[in-house]
């Protein structure tokens, strides 16, 4: 009986030993030499694998940063939008470098074509995806630039930073959750969503419209469309506003958040976010005919 036990133990140990030796040599022979820093960098990253940096996943980003650090001694152009400056300085310190802090960004929806502002002209009866609807036709609201109300951006968001507002039909961005990975920007076939800087105290001013049609045409489909009238352009003291193809655009790097443009916009297409309420109430809700007048003037 004992013989059997001893034999079993010895033979098993022998097999184990032989296997260990083979494994050791094989491991030596096929060793992949990899910079241990890659693992360290990857460890520091948020592991969201969202692709916001332009690489397929965090591992690839780590590889790219180590490679660039070894080659160029800097990691310029590489930025993890999810981790932000904190994580990037950590990554830099692992690589023995320093990085300049980048301004944090946030996604902004540049369309106010709600179901109320831009009423339905046709009924859509097909798969609920913007990518298909965009290829098929101009959209239920008849604005060929505006939101299609089908929510590909919400599908694309990995951070619970967006939801569809059933009432307006538009997506809503939850700023606190948004990490500016750009997935929604990529997903939107109409380029409505833009990444803009968060700004001082999260204050932002932007034109909430991307319609490049002539004013009259744009307004026919949507009450709050930018008609390219140029009033904001005239009132801006900082050259932050440009008008191209009947559409105003506010450069967030030049904008000083004075809010003058918001006041003069005849169609309320310029939005301000996170500002305290105004002390003196401006003449809001201009009379409809007044808007019509400006529009007519601009058409002439």
């Amino acid at each position: 009986m004992n013989d059997v036990v001893i034999f079993a133990v010895i033979s098993l140990a022998g097999i184990g030993l032989a296997a260990a030796i083979i494994l050791y040599f094989v491991a030596q022979k096929f060793k992949v030499i990899e910079d241990p820093k890659i693992d360290e960098v990857e460890e520091a990253l948020p592991a969201a694998n969202c692709g916001g940096c332009g690489y397929p996943g965090c591992r690839n980003f780590a590889e790219a940063s180590v490679k660039k650090a070894n080659k160029d001694k800097n990691i310029e152009g590489l930025y993890c939008p999810v981790g932000g400056n904190e994580i990037m300085s950590k990554v830099a310190s692992i690589l023995g470098l320093e990085v300049e802090a980048q301004e944090p960004m946030v996604a902004v929806l540049r369309c106010s074509g709600t179901k109320k502002n831009a009423p339905k002209k046709v009924e859509y009866n097909g798969p609920m995806t913007c990518a298909f609807a965009h290829n098929l036709y101009q959209g239920e609201s008849a604005c060929p630039y505006g939101c299609l109300w089908l929510g590909d951006c919400v599908e694309a968001c990995n951070f619970d930073a967006m939801y569809m507002d059933e009432e307006t039909g538009l997506p809503v961005i939850i700023e606190d959750n948004c990490v500016a990975c750009g997935a929604c920007v990529e997903a939107c076939p109409r380029d409505i969503i833009e990444l803009r800087n968060v700004g001082k105290k999260s204050k932002r001013i932007f034109v909430s419209c991307v319609n490049e049609e002539k004013g009259g045409v744009a307004r026919k489909n949507c009450k709050v469309a930018c008609i390219g009238c140029g009033k904001c352009f005239q009132v801006c003291k900082f050259d932050a506003i440009t008008i191209e193809n009947n559409l105003a655009y506010i450069d967030y790097e030049k904008c000083k958040l004075c809010r003058k443009c918001v006041e003069v916009c005849p169609t309320n297409a310029i939005h301000e976010l996170n500002f305290p309420p105004r002390k003196v109430k401006p003449v809001e809700n201009k009379k409809p005919d007044e808007i019509e007048k400006t529009e007519i003037k601009q058409q002439v």
Binding site: K120, K121, V122, E123, Y124, N125, G126, F132, L136, Y137
Partner: peptide, 9 residues
Amino acid sequence: MNLLTVSGS
């Protein structure tokens, strides 16, 4: 006339 329906073929 009703709202026109749009869908793919």
